[in-house]
């Protein structure tokens, strides 16, 4: 079990490297990253438009293009997420980590507590599991998986306003608008969602780089090559 400290150590003990993230998972990670960054920048520019270009409106399409890039990235973001959900069904056990928290497992909870203590400098011992540690998994579940889902449904609901009543986006996602109050409310929550995801990005990058530098297992190269390396000074 990936959430088992002991077995993670055992498996890693002999080999010092383990294949963790399969190619589709790694590919999605980067598609997700770059589509999110594009969405964040273009989304910010939609909320805070650039200075006006000079001339007749017929010769410019600045806002239109920014919105188009936003919509295209949104499709990439959404389709990528859909493919990623599919891969959770057919991929290895680590591919399911970001979708499911094993809340029913006592060991997982103990692992979570251990990680919280570790990052609060209350215990020096580091976990050497293969996949995500329980703390990372929890953060990833709420701030990436749930937020991605939230951004997709609110985004398509707002997109449906532009496509018009009765369009596919309106029929599938339009219900979210009255649920969040109104169009303006939905827009605001969508905007706040970007900041929450950005917050996750900051912490996520820090944690990964830190673990790579301080910890005993690779955590940056693993999402590029898929192999988790272990630097076990004790073994």
């Amino acid at each position: 079990m990936n959430s088992n400290v002991a077995s993670g150590l055992r498996e890693a003990g002999g080999k010092r490297a383990e294949y963790v993230f399969e190619a589709p998972v790694r590919l999605w990670h980067w598609v997700h990253t770059f589509s999110f960054l594009t969405l964040a920048v273009t989304g910010y520019l939609i909320a805070h438009p650039l200075p006006s270009p000079i001339g007749e409106p017929s010769s410019h399409f600045l806002m239109g293009n920014i919105r188009m890039v936003h919509f295209i990235s949104a499709y990439v973001f959404a389709v990528g997420f859909a493919v990623r959900i599919y891969w959770a069904f057919v991929g290895n056990k680590h591919s399911r980590e970001i979708f499911m928290l094993p809340l029913w497992r006592g060991r997982w909870w103990r692992g979570l507590l251990h990680e919280v203590k570790y990052y609060l400098f209350l215990t020096p011992r580091e976990d050497k599991r293969l996949g995500h540690n329980p703390l990372a998994q929890t953060a990833m579940f709420f701030f990436n998986t749930v937020m991605t889902f939230f951004m997709i449904i609110t985004g398509f609901a707002l997109y449906g306003q532009g496509l018009g009543l009765g369009s596919w986006a309106d029929r599938m996602f339009g219900w979210i608008i009255p649920m969040l109050g109104d169009g303006e409310g939905t827009r605001n929550w969508h905007q706040l969602g970007m900041w929450v995801m950005l917050m996750f990005v900051i912490v996520h990058i820090y944690m990964a780089v830190r673990a790579d530098m301080v910890g005993k297992r690779s955590s940056v190269s693993v999402i590029i090559g898929g192999w988790r390396m272990f630097r076990d000074d004790d073994s």
């Binding site: 805070h48 917050m199 996750f200 830190r210």
Partner: peptide, 25 residues
Amino acid sequence: STADKVGGILAGAAAIGVAAHAAAS
């Protein structure tokens, strides 16, 4: 408060938290 104000504070807090944690590490 607007989404950008709240969001800016969240992201700023995350950045400060990360820096503080790095120093503590």
